[in-house]
Design a binder for these strands. Structure first.
Length: 489
RNA sequence: GCGGGUAUAGCUCAGUGGUAGAGCCCUGGCCUUCCAAGCCAGAGGCGCGGGUUCGAUUCCCGCUACCCGCUCCA
């Protein structure tokens, strides 16, 4: 394994060199917190997305209970708009949460919420409030908004203000009734969505880990309250297994249950799936996905209005006039159980994953340096991306050993056959060893080499990325062999 | 948002007040029968803006991006 010290730099350099990830708008100097995916990166990211969509949605069997669970469940997909009605974010609590008036102290560098100055302490003199100590040098209250603001319609007017969504989840909640009415689903069921979200992070950092524009893969899973704990544990464990199944080493990925103090005000259970990213100090982990038990918080918010916890109960937040500060839709988002005749507000389990963070974790996990002997037996260094074949941007390369004796023609014919099904490369530039290394660096799991023996007996060499071992298979059986290795992914 | 550091070719680095070079990589050709070979040819660069100067990649200022530490956020 390469030493941890420069590992992240090497991964960033590889991403740039081979066209996985570039800084956005780079020719203009870049723009912080935004990233572009290059020709290989876009395939890797698509593969992550598609693995999730296939495993969570398309291949889900909604007639069979998962092992150990009381019932089967349905899962449907959805794609909702990035800009939603502004009231969505007010009722959900995001507007208040992401929107603060803050005061900075120029002297001690501390930052305070303007509405909490009276109850805050000066860090240098805790007996005093900010501004009361002699060295305090406070700025006026300044607006901080973590949500990107825009205007709907050409007229720039406060009435037309809207926000780019800071999460995809609200799209599922506001479509709860539409899905119930059209998809013929019964509890328990899930709604899945993949899409872009936007947060105006104060400090974008760690390559693509904390970006201002990012992509999420989220499920809102609706179930009966009394079964919610069970489903929470189901999703928590299942989602962890998903990362492991795609190659994240179990020693660098972990599940961490939040402590009670750490839980959001609406949550009665949350776990993070975390990865030991190389840019973090040894022993520290960064969040890949959060699995939250959200109770009935979201559906109730969109019925009644913004909720706050008071004396342990979720109640609608009211202003001085006694009316809700941020009213909900007033629509009935309850569920009627035909069998029991009972009407209830389902509880929600929310596995919320970051696509870009997953891509980054898979890249970090896959990056490796080893040494393989050259023709003289001297070990030569090699950079190899040990990506899971389902995630590999290029599934195989077809290579003529030399550019004559009809080898290119045979190789091109094979390339064209495989290209009908998979993303494969054809390469006849440079020595065979160099071409293998090029494929290693972008994570291509297999190379098929047309050589002298192909002309004689119709077999080709298959070279394995991870072991560099070679075997021979029949030219006519390459497509079948590759299909088997890729497992239909 | 604060403090510190960095910015020359795709990468790693030289270098200069008179517009820059190496190695690797890349492209074309020759040669090559299995792990970054060789030969020939070629492409490609001083982050952005302003100032000083006859002339700035070099000196000064500002900006931007990235890295580290705080802060913030989850």
């Amino acid at each position: 394994m390469p030493d941890r010290e420069n590992l992240m730099d090497k991964i960033v350099a590889l991403c740039k060199r081979r066209g996985f990830i570039f800084p956005s708008s780079e020719i203009y100097g870049g723009i912080g917190g935004f990233w572009d995916y290059g020709p290989l990166g876009v395939e890797l990211k698509r593969n992550v997305r598609e693995a999730w969509w296939q495993d969570m949605v398309l291949r889900h069997d909604d007639t069979t209970p998962p092992p150990g669970m009381p019932s089967p469940y349905a899962m449907v997909g959805i794609e909702t708009s990035i800009i939603m009605h502004p009231q969505v974010w007010k009722a959900s609590g995001h507007y208040d949460l992401f929107h603060d008036m803050l005061v900075d102290c120029r002297h001690c560098k501390a930052r305070f919420r303007a509405d909490q100055l009276a109850t805050s302490q000066c860090p240098e003199k805790p007996s005093k409030r900010p501004g009361e100590h002699t060295t305090c040098d406070l700025t006026p209250p300044r607006e901080f908004n973590l949500m990107f603001k825009t205007y709907v319609g050409a007229l720039v007017d406060p009435e037309s203000e809207a926000y780019l969504r800071p999460e995809t989840a609200q799209g599922m909640f506001v479509n709860f009734r539409n899905v119930l009415a059209t998809a013929r689903v019964k509890l328990p069921f899930g709604i899945a969505q993949i899409g872009k979200s936007f947060r105006n992070e104060i400090t974008p950092r760690y390559f693509t880990y904390r970006s201002r524009e990012f992509e999420q893969m989220e499920i809102e899973f609706f179930c009966r309250p009394e079964e919610s704990r069970l489903w929470y544990e189901y999703w928590r464990d299942r989602r962890l297994r998903w990362y492991v199944s795609l190659g994240l080493g179990s020693d660098r990925v972990r599940l961490r249950e939040h402590s009670p103090e750490e839980l959001s005000h609406y949550s009665c259970g949350t776990a993070d799936i975390e990865y030991a990213f190389p840019f973090l100090p040894p022993g520290e982990f960064g969040e890949l996905e959060g699995i939250a038990h959200r109770g009935d918080f979201d559906l109730r918010s969109h019925m009644e209005g913004k909720l706050v916890r008071r004396d342990g109960e979720l109640v609608v937040e009211t202003g001085p006039n006694g009316k809700p500060t941020h009213p909900g839709s007033g629509k009935d988002l309850s569920y009627f159980d035909e069998e029991t005749g009972e009407r209830l507000i389902p509880h929600v389990i929310e596995p919320s994953a970051g696509v870009d963070r997953s891509v980054l974790a898979f890249l970090c996990e896959a990056y490796d340096e080893d040494a393989i002997p050259d023709e003289k037996g001297v070990p030569q260094p090699r950079v190899v991306l040990r990506l899971h074949p389902r995630l590999a941007p290029v599934k195989a390369a077809v290579l003529p050993l030399i550019r004559k004796e009809g080898m290119p023609e045979i190789a091109l014919e094979l390339y064209r056959e495989l290209k009908k099904t998979w993303n494969v490369d054809y390469d006849d530039k440079g020595s065979i060893g160099r071409r293998y290394r090029r494929q290693d660096e972008c994570g291509t799991p297999y190379c098929f080499t047309v050589d002298g023996q192909t002309l004689a007996d119709g077999t080709v060499t298959v070279r394995d990325r991870d072991t560099t071992h070679q075997e021979r298979i029949k030219l006519s059986e390459v497509a079948g062999w590759l299909g088997e290795k890729l497992g239909g992914g």
